[in-house]
């Protein structure tokens, strides 16, 4: 409880502060872009930036789902494993080719992936809410389960798309573009726009914020807390599936390393974006910004000749911390 909060003499609070908080991640992103341009002039090339934004799609889309889960006061560590599992089942389905024709086949596989993702999310949500177990533990458990199922499906190796024709038909979903805008970028924009709409403009979104702010108040206000929580996990599962829809056409395979550590990247993107880990505040566009920052950091490191390849991890960590510092110092103003 802040000192001022209990007196009516509250410090003038803050339309401006709120704005700054939302803008902060974008300032950090801009600073990073300037830094990148200084390091290597090629950095600002259209091709390079397009590549980076395109490949940030997986983390960005998953992190939109994570924004919902975290805003509602939850956590999902299983997203990386879930992505591998969804990708694995999707490819196996494509390889089984139960229907004729490339496009209907792919469409069906996409539906299946969304269904599997939603079910995985539902499992996380139900175990957390019905079982009354800490989400950290639940999703740590399902993280192992989804990962092991993937490896089992792959029989220890990788699951690759067998049909070259299907592969060719599906490939444009990652590599194609519409009027020069890569499809994955459109996917990011669409998912973020829908996510922002749901979180900020709908009753459900308001309920998510309320549950994350204070579960008891939400319950006493007639909100079905468990249902809201569970749905956030289902949204997370759907977002993972959408990321997979874009991931599979890139390399056409799921391996034991697919999605490794994506959960940490997604959570990092959410936090850099200004969403509070304790819940109650969610910033979808900030999250997208966070995902871009993460991807740019890696890109700048490869493009630069600043440090030995052995030290890249250290510099990446330092840049993320600096980005957070910029973000927080602006937000505190």
């Amino acid at each position: 409880m802040s000192d001022a909060a209990t007196t009516s003499a509250t410090p003038p609070a803050p339309r401006r502060e709120i704005d700054l908080r939302a803008v902060a991640p974008f300032v950090a992103l801009a600073a990073l872009l300037v830094f990148g341009a200084l390091v290597n002039p090629n950095f600002l090339g259209i091709d390079n930036l397009t590549n980076v934004i395109t490949r940030s799609a997986f983390i960005a889309v998953i992190a939109v789902g994570a924004t919902f889960v975290i805003s509602a006061g939850g956590l999902d560590l299983s997203v990386g494993s879930m992505a591998a599992f969804v990708a694995g089942t999707m490819i196996l389905f494509l390889n089984a080719a139960p229907v004729e024709g490339g496009v209907p086949m792919i469409a069906l596989a996409m539906l299946l992936a969304l269904g599997v993702g939603a079910l995985c999310g539902l499992a996380n949500g139900l175990i957390t809410t019905v079982g009354r177990i800490e989400p950290f533990i639940v999703t740590l458990g399902t993280m192992g389960i989804y990962r092991a199922l993937t490896i089992w499906l792959a029989e220890g190796g990788s699951i690759a798309m067998a049909s070259r024709d299907l592969r060719a038909a599906y490939r444009p979903v990652y590599f194609g573009d519409v009027f020069g805008v890569p499809i994955p970028v459109l996917v990011i924009l669409a998912v973020a726009a829908i996510g922002a709409f749901v979180l900020y403009r709908t009753r459900f979104g308001r309920h998510v914020m309320a549950v994350g702010s204070n579960e008891d108040v939400a319950r006493y206000s007639g909100i079905k807390v468990d249902r809201v929580r569970t749905i956030t996990y289902v949204i997370q599962g759907l977002c993972v599936a959408i990321a997979v829809l874009v991931y599979v056409p890139r390399l056409g395979a799921a391996t034991a390393t697919t999605g490794l550590l994506w959960e940490l990247q997604a959570i990092t993107a959410v936090v850099i974006g200004g969403t509070a880990l304790r819940g109650g505040v969610g910033r979808i566009w900030g999250t997208i910004c966070g995902a871009l920052i993460l991807e740019l950091v890696g890109n700048i490191m490869v493009l630069s000749d600043l440090v030995s390849e052995y030290l890249i991890g250290a510099v990446q960590g330092a840049i993320i911390i600096v980005a957070m510092l910029i973000q927080r110092s602006l937000a505190r103003r």
Binding site: F43, N48, R55, T257, L260, G298, N299, L303, I312
Partner: peptide
């Protein structure tokens, strides 16, 4: 020209190669 770690991973190697091509 350059040597970087790709962590024996397809995804990471894809990224590093994209970056090489830009560089």
């Amino acid at each position: 020209l350059d040597r970087q770690f790709g962590n024996w991973s397809r995804d990471d190697a894809f990224k590093v190669m994209q970056d090489y091509l830009a560089k």
